[in-house]
Design a protein around this nucleic acid. Sequence first.
DNA 1: CCCGAAGACTTCAACACTAAAGTTAGAACC
DNA 2: GGTTCTAACTTTAGTGTTGAAGTCTTCGGG
Lengths: 191, 191
Amino acid sequence: MAETTEPGGPTGPAGPEEPTLDEQIAAYQREFRDLDPQVEKVVSALGRLNRRMNVAYGRQVAALGISNAEWEVLKTLVLAGKPYRLGPGELAKRLGLTPAAMTHRIDRMAGEGLVTRDRDENNRVRVIVELTDEGRTKWLEAMQMATDFEEDLLQDLTPDERGSLGEMLIRLLRRVEHAQPDAGGRLTDLD
Amino acid sequence: MAETTEPGGPTGPAGPEEPTLDEQIAAYQREFRDLDPQVEKVVSALGRLNRRMNVAYGRQVAALGISNAEWEVLKTLVLAGKPYRLGPGELAKRLGLTPAAMTHRIDRMAGEGLVTRDRDENNRVRVIVELTDEGRTKWLEAMQMATDFEEDLLQDLTPDERGSLGEMLIRLLRRVEHAQPDAGGRLTDLD
DNA sequence: CCCGAAGACTTCAACACTAAAGTTAGAACC
DNA sequence: GGTTCTAACTTTAGTGTTGAAGTCTTCGGG
């Protein structure tokens, strides 16, 4: 059964493999004349790196029986600090999803015992989502796995390199935040 | 109507705002003793940066009347090179989604005239998805917007900095790829 | 007081994606 | 040259998300 999907050459060693980063940039340059390879290299590497990292995180937390999406909620609640409470609206805003999606996500997580959902007694319009002890434990386990992974990931960089990498990324972040006052961008994934 | 969701202090200026990157790292350190702030800074900045960038891309291509998902398909076909053809299975693999999802995505895009879908006459099990002229034009327009944006994003970095940033990212990429032989990680988003 | 308006969710309908089962065309074997 | 295997898609059922409409509480006048 032939190779995979090659309509071209008979035995070309350059099959329709997924291109490496360098191949990809070369291909873009062929198709799009005024492309700065250095810029493209940074941007493409950023994108790929993030994608692989998210896959890795997903697998790790799956081992704990939670989804990446649930982990995001746990992180957000922990970041809010004791007593680990936030309303659905605020959670939705921070996670970058709609209130409707948040409602369902909280349903699930409450069913699994990771959070509780109660009406605010002082203002019965509001709802309070609070992390349970079980939820906090899950967060801790996931956090341990994540930091181990991250430490390993940066292993090849010297402390100086880590510093300058972080500094440059923050500069880019500032730039993109400045260019984007905010607006309703949906796209999941937190850090 | 009060602030937003503050059960704590009466007028604390530190409301439940979305934390800045530094606040976030400080919060994690409070909750998780053995956290390396430098590592966390890199990882968190990476995550945030990518999220904002994806939102930005999404808005730009939306102005052209296509979704981020559709743009990924266009990019993948262009990367395949002339005659801009790939099978649904190969597309699915490169985009990180299931063949089933690919089927529907191609349906839509064929309906919009961005691609054509035909059976391979030499092997009628296979299907060939090919970019139309309109699809290629859309890609070009999107590419122009994307590169303008990327160029602007990196504006504050010197050529040397761009080079070392790219080099470090690629080192990280290699490490994460090495640690992840591949496996079936789903998570969309391409570069 | 009672009424209208605003705020904070929740519900509903439509859509996109995944996992698993189904379909159909070539390949391999005897 | 028919049976079985495999590959490449498509279909189906179930989950998660969005956008819009609906519900319920609280606030602000008249």
